[in-house]
Lab assay of single mutants.
Amino acid sequence: LADYWKCTSCNEMNPPLPSHCNRCWALRE
């Protein structure tokens, strides 16, 4: 979970790649 990032649109936790959210497809900010 070290490099995971949280989507600013839906708060889904996503892996470093790809740089878009797996749930709502918003790009990582």
Rank of each mutant, 00 (worst) to 15 (best):
L1W: 11
L1S: 14
L1I: 14
A2N: 13
A2R: 15
A2V: 09
Y4L: 15
Y4H: 10
Y4R: 00
W5C: 08
W5A: 04
W5S: 07
K6G: 06
C7Y: 01
C7G: 03
T8N: 01
T8L: 09
S9Y: 08
S9V: 15
C10Y: 10
C10P: 02
N11F: 05
N11G: 05
N11L: 10
N11E: 03
N11Y: 11
M13I: 05
N14V: 14
N14L: 03
P15R: 05
P15T: 04
P15H: 12
P15A: 06
P15C: 02
P15K: 00
P16H: 04
P16A: 05
P16C: 00
P16G: 05
P16R: 04
P16E: 02
P16L: 03
P16S: 04
P16V: 02
L17R: 09
L17P: 04
L17D: 10
L17Q: 10
L17Y: 05
L17T: 08
L17S: 12
P18K: 13
P18R: 14
P18S: 13
P18Q: 14
P18E: 14
P18G: 14
P18Y: 09
P18D: 11
S19F: 15
S19N: 09
S19P: 11
S19C: 04
S19I: 11
S19Q: 13
S19H: 12
S19M: 06
H20C: 01
H20D: 03
H20K: 12
H20G: 08
H20M: 03
H20T: 06
H20E: 03
H20P: 15
H20Y: 07
H20V: 06
H20R: 12
C21R: 01
C21I: 01
C21E: 02
C21Y: 00
C21F: 01
C21A: 02
C21K: 02
C21T: 02
C21L: 00
C21Q: 03
C21S: 01
N22M: 11
N22G: 14
N22R: 13
N22D: 09
N22K: 13
N22Q: 14
N22S: 09
R23H: 05
R23W: 03
R23A: 11
R23L: 04
R23G: 10
R23F: 04
R23Y: 04
R23V: 05
R23N: 06
R23Q: 09
C24K: 00
C24V: 00
C24W: 00
C24M: 00
C24L: 00
W25G: 15
W25K: 15
W25Q: 15
W25R: 15
W25A: 15
W25T: 13
W25D: 15
W25F: 11
W25P: 08
W25I: 08
W25N: 15
A26F: 02
A26S: 07
A26V: 06
A26L: 07
A26Q: 09
A26E: 13
A26K: 06
L27H: 05
L27V: 10
L27M: 07
L27K: 13
L27A: 12
L27N: 09
L27C: 03
L27F: 05
L27Q: 12
L27R: 11
R28S: 06
R28I: 03
R28E: 06
R28Y: 05
R28C: 12
R28D: 11
R28H: 10
R28M: 05
R28P: 10
R28Q: 12
R28L: 03
E29W: 03
E29P: 15
E29R: 13
